[in-house]
């Protein structure tokens, strides 16, 4: 069955791909730490969409369960990540990622 509610599966996957690449652009091009984080969330959501798509198309419930867990983990990650951003801002008064280059050679 190649249709989920009448729409071919590749359409969903293409949408997920577009979301993923947009998120990738954001990660690579933007210099604000919070915006980068939001782009990462975009990528995660793209992956969620893929999971749901395949769960529906193969009539398995496992994919939806995974997405549930991914959301929980994304929430945890958001908390930690933003805590780190706050801590860095406290030290360096900026969230510009180019300034965080202590690991330079």
């Amino acid at each position: 069955m190649n249709l989920i509610s009448g729409i071919p599966v590749p359409y969903y996957l293409s949408l997920a791909g577009i979301m993923f690449t947009i998120g990738m652009f954001g990660v690579l091009l933007r210099r604000n730490a919070v915006v980068i984080f939001m782009s990462v969330e975009l990528m995660l959501n793209a992956v969620n969409l893929v999971f749901i798509t395949f769960s529906k198309s193969t009539a398995q419930v496992g994919g939806e369960v995974i997405v549930f867990f991914v959301m929980a983990i994304a929430a945890a990650e958001a908390a930690i990540g933003l805590a780190i951003v706050i801590a860095i801002h406290r030290q360096k008064k900026t969230v510009h990622v180019d300034e965080m280059n202590l690991l330079k050679w």
Partner: peptide, 17 residues
């Protein structure tokens, strides 16, 4: 080769990509 280690996270993300 060590010039690859710029310390800028964005560059590392690029390598991952």
């Amino acid at each position: 080769l060590r010039k690859l280690q710029t310390g800028i996270v964005g560059d590392y993300a690029l390598y991952i990509v």
